[in-house]
Amino acid sequence: MPVTDVTTDAKNLTMTVVADLAAPIDRVWGAYSDPRQLERFWGPPGWPATFTHWDHTVGGKANYTMNGPRGEKASGTWEFLEIDGPRAFTVLDSFADESGTPDPNLPSMRMTFTFEQTAEGTRMVNTSYFASAEALETVVSMGAVEGTTLAMSQLDAVLQGLRDYAQGKGTNVELLDDTHVRITRLVEGPRELVWRAHNEPELMKKWLLGPDGWEMTECVLATEVGQSYRTSWAPTGDTEGEAFGFEGESLLIDAPKRSVQTERMIGMPIETLNDLNLYEEDGATLITLYVEYLDKETRDMILATGMADGMEASYARLERELLAV
Rank of each mutant, 00 (worst) to 15 (best):
P2H: 07
D5K: 14
V6Y: 14
T8W: 14
T8D: 06
L13M: 10
L13H: 10
A19E: 03
L21G: 06
L21E: 03
A23C: 08
I25G: 02
D26N: 12
V28Y: 12
V28D: 01
V28R: 04
V28C: 11
G30D: 07
D34C: 12
F41Y: 12
W42A: 06
W42K: 01
W42I: 00
P44W: 07
P45R: 07
G46V: 05
W47P: 06
A49D: 01
W54E: 02
H56N: 08
V58G: 06
G59M: 10
N63F: 15
Y64I: 02
R70V: 00
A74W: 15
S75E: 05
T77W: 11
E82F: 14
E82G: 04
I83R: 07
D84M: 08
P86I: 05
F89G: 00
F89Q: 01
L92K: 13
L92R: 05
S94G: 07
F95N: 02
T101V: 11
D103L: 13
S108P: 09
T118I: 11
E120L: 08
E120R: 13
E120F: 14
G121N: 05
T122S: 08
T122W: 15
M124L: 13
M124C: 09
N126C: 12
Y129C: 02
E134H: 13
E134N: 12
E137R: 13
E137C: 06
V139E: 02
V140A: 11
S141N: 14
A144H: 10
V145L: 10
G147P: 08
G147L: 04
T149Y: 11
A151K: 09
M152Y: 15
Q154D: 02
A157W: 10
L159E: 04
L159M: 13
L159P: 04
G161A: 06
K169L: 12
G170K: 05
N172G: 03
L175M: 12
L175F: 15
L176H: 09
D177V: 04
T179A: 10
E188C: 12
R191T: 00
E192S: 11
L193Y: 05
W195R: 03
N199Q: 06
L203Q: 03
M216P: 03
C219H: 08
C219P: 05
G226P: 04
G226N: 00
S228N: 13
Y229C: 02
R230K: 13
W233E: 00
W233L: 00
P235A: 01
T236Y: 13
D238V: 03
E242A: 07
F244T: 02
G245A: 01
A255Y: 14
A255P: 15
A255M: 10
P256T: 00
P256W: 09
K257Y: 15
K257W: 14
K257C: 05
R258M: 05
S259L: 14
S259I: 08
S259Y: 15
V260M: 12
R264H: 15
M265G: 03
I266D: 01
G267A: 06
I270P: 05
D275V: 02
D275T: 04
D282F: 12
A284Y: 05
Y290A: 04
Y290L: 14
E292A: 13
Y293G: 01
K296N: 10
T298K: 14
R299N: 06
G306H: 04
G306Q: 05
M311W: 15
E312Y: 04
E312A: 03
A313Q: 07
S314C: 08
S314Q: 02
L318P: 07
E319N: 14
E321S: 09
A324Q: 06
A324E: 09
V325R: 15
